[in-house]
């Protein structure tokens, strides 16, 4: 079973791209479960345990062209070992593997969208990030139909 999880703050412009994708999923891919988990961290575990495949859509700020989509896997995330009190996505996945090794999804795909503005209070995405939303949904569709 597949689930699509949107992360980020819907009120802070491009940070809400995950939530925007989740909203569109209901129309575009009605058969696939999608949930907006906002700025959750450890709560993500409740939604991924027992799944075969998980897509996580989130904003990222690295300085490349806004709207750029990167397909990442957990191994691509910053290693958690430098965190003294970390609860980033990488830590959450590692924690899940330690506590529930038989329940973790076989595949976790992180779709990270380069954001342009994550500070303004608005529910609107910037143009470049808005144009990434249909591409993101297409990427999810392709991944699902390919396998």
């Amino acid at each position: 079973m597949t689930i699509v999880i949107g992360l980020g703050n819907l009120l802070r412009a491009d940070d809400g791209v995950g939530a925007h994708v989740v909203r569109r999923m209901a129309e575009e891919l009605p058969g696939v479960e999608a949930v907006d988990l906002s700025t959750s961290d450890i709560g993500i575990l409740d939604y991924i345990r027992g799944r075969d495949r998980v897509f996580i859509v989130d904003a990222i700020v690295t300085g490349v062209e806004p709207g750029t989509i990167r397909r990442l896997e957990p191994g691509d995330l910053v290693a958690a070992d430098f965190l003294s009190h970390g609860l980033n996505l990488s830590s959450v996945l590692r924690l899940g593997s330690e506590l529930y090794p038989d329940e973790m999804p076989g595949e976790v795909i992180i779709l990270a969208v380069e954001a342009e503005d994550i500070s303004s209070f608005t529910e609107q995405l910037t143009e470049k990030v808005a144009s990434a939303v249909p591409r993101l949904i297409e990427m999810v569709r392709e991944e699902i139909t390919r396998t």
Partner: peptide, 11 residues
Amino acid sequence: FACATHSLPGR
């Protein structure tokens, strides 16, 4: 400070 934003990799 989470009343700010959340983008990868951490909070």
